[in-house]
Design a binder for these strands. Structure first.
Length: 463
RNA sequence: GGGGCCAUCGCCAAGUUGGUAAGGCCGUAGAUUGCAAAUCUGCUAUUCUCCAGUUCGAGUCUGGAUGGCCCCUCCA
């Protein structure tokens, strides 16, 4: 396995801290609003990593948190007059449902920040004790970035703060110092050894990583991931507080996925042009979205638009058409060379482009052979096994093929289609091709594509 | 103002250690078909935004220009 480490800015051979075991932590969502395409991409990127690591034999512990206490959630509470729990439970469930629709496998552990306050207190206390943190007059606790000699080494942000867009809080010792604990009694607060208050954002990940993993003398976990925007300051801060509190580095490898733009424009909360996943799922099948969103390498920027989505769907369709051809057989063993090439691609920093081209070439070969010997059982079994391998590794092609091409068709519509097909076939029998074609035209206008095969006429819903 | 990333065929998109441009869509010719669709086969970038340099050799390295994006503010 090779992984691009965004801290070292180079592709590295992956060597897990403990042989055959991997611990990966990915920053999950703050549950105060619906998930957008960016959340989907991040989740999908690390789902691919999770699946690939498992496929090559690692025992993987995958942790993805839910930030369920935060200023934005509190703002929402004030806004809509609901409790913290009502809001966070609602959006957590929504998030999980939508990720399920995308075929994202559930992480091994999904901790919530509010369930780990004690772990955060302990880490903050330890930082105070060791002199890496300080308390200001209102009771807030800040991390002192100037005490960490390695601060900035992760993101390579120069530790020179002469110009910054952030308005300095007067009592902060350095502009980049960040809040570990906010002393407050307002709305949401926890009793702690630091007094009443709530944690800052960065501390939760560090504390939960310590709580849910064992770590070694050198590192807490193997891989830490998240969106590219989290590299600074979020991950830099996590790395700093962790190393100062525990005496070892937080993660051996850092991975960041690229941004999603919509029709060439940045999607952001402040611009108000977030493309919600729920809206996308309303228009397109989850698997079609999954295929499209993962078809570009995870580190590149992704420009979401409908034309590209529809084009990428055609590639997915091919997998399902092949699956239709081998529908009547159970699977045997996948082709060795195919498996090997697929794994070779995915273990090269998740090179999905190569993996997809390997699939295309497998499909072309299988189709060619099936054209010659349509009833070759062994060939069908092997092809089916290949498709199941794709499903397993990449999460594509899991559906029953006939259902895949009939998504969005209700019973009435189906009956209507069957009726028209019947009429067409009778016209064909009578050699009245003009009449037969008129039925086909009718189906085409209903967005139904038909194809005559040796086993009768098949149909597919277009788009 | 500071830091970083990217720029490959009409469109999407691979291409660590420099060695002579994957794949998909579209288009096109053919096989197949009553005609289609599906499927298969052939063709489709002497060239990688531009300029200069290093080199026997550069899409890949260096410098510069242009364009796009990200971070430094909540953000995946």
């Amino acid at each position: 396995m090779y992984i691009y480490d965004s801290s070292k800015k180079t592709k590295l051979k992956f060597e897990s801290i403990i042989p055959d075991k991997v611990t990966m932590y990915v920053c999950g969502p703050t549950v105060y609003d619906d998930a957008h395409l960016g959340h989907a991409r991040s989740s999908l990127s690390f789902d691919m990593l999770f699946r690939t690591l498992k496929a090559i034999g690692y025992e993987v512990k995958y942790i993805r948190n839910f930030t369920d206490v935060d200023d934005k959630i509190i703002a929402k509470m004030k806004d809509i007059g609901k409790s913290l729990l009502e809001i966070t439970e609602f959006y957590t469930q929504r998030y999980l449902n939508e990720m399920d629709a995308l075929g994202v496998q559930r992480p091994t552990v999904s901790p919530k920040a509010t369930e780990s306050i004690e772990a955060m207190e302990n880490m903050i206390s330890s930082l105070l004790k060791k002199g890496f943190a300080y308390q200001i007059s209102n009771g807030d606790v800040y991390f002192n970035t100037s005490k960490d000699t390695k601060y900035g080494s992760l993101s390579h942000m120069v530790n020179d703060d002469t110009i910054s867009r952030i308005e300095a809080i007067s009592e902060k010792k350095n502009p980049k110092d960040f809040a570990l604990w906010k002393a407050t009694n307002e709305f949401v607060s926890f009793d702690s050894i630091l007094g009443k208050g709530r944690p800052g954002w960065h501390i939760e990940c560090s504390a939960m990583i310590e709580k849910y993993t064992d770590g070694t003398a050198e590192y807490s976990i193997d891989i830490h991931g998240g969106g590219a925007d989290l590299l600074f300051p979020h991950h830099e801060n996590e790395a700093a507080q962790s190393r100062c509190a525990t005496g070892h580095e937080l993660a051996k490898y850092w991975m960041h996925n690229g941004f999603v733009q919509v029709d060439g424009e940045k999607m952001s909360k402040s611009l108000g042009n977030s493309f919600f996943l729920k809206d996308a799922l309303n228009s397109y099948d989850g698997e079609v979205l999954r295929f499209y969103l993962t078809s570009v390498h995870y580190r590149n920027d992704f420009n979401f638009n409908e034309i590209d989505l529809l084009n990428s769907k055609k590639r997915l369709d091919r997998i399902y058409r092949l699956k239709k051809r081998v529908f009547d057989q159970t699977s045997s063993k996948p082709t060795e060379r195919f498996v090997q090439k697929m794994l070779e691609a995915m273990t090269d920093d998740l090179n999905i482009s190569i993996a997809l081209s390997v699939i295309d070439s497998m499909a072309a070969t299988a189709n060619e052979k099936l054209d010659i010997t349509p009833n070759d059982k062994n060939l069908k079994k092997e092809t089916r096994a290949n498709i199941e391998f794709i499903s397993h590794l990449l999460g594509f092609g899991e559906k029953e093929p006939f259902e895949y091409f009939q998504i969005g068709i209700d019973e009435d519509m189906k009956a209507k289609i069957e009726e028209l097909l019947g009429q067409r076939s009778e016209a064909k029998k009578a050699k009245d091709f003009k009449l037969a074609d008129s039925f086909r035209d009718k189906l085409t206008s209903m967005d139904i594509l038909i194809m005559d095969t040796a086993n009768g006429t098949l149909w597919e819903k277009l788009t």
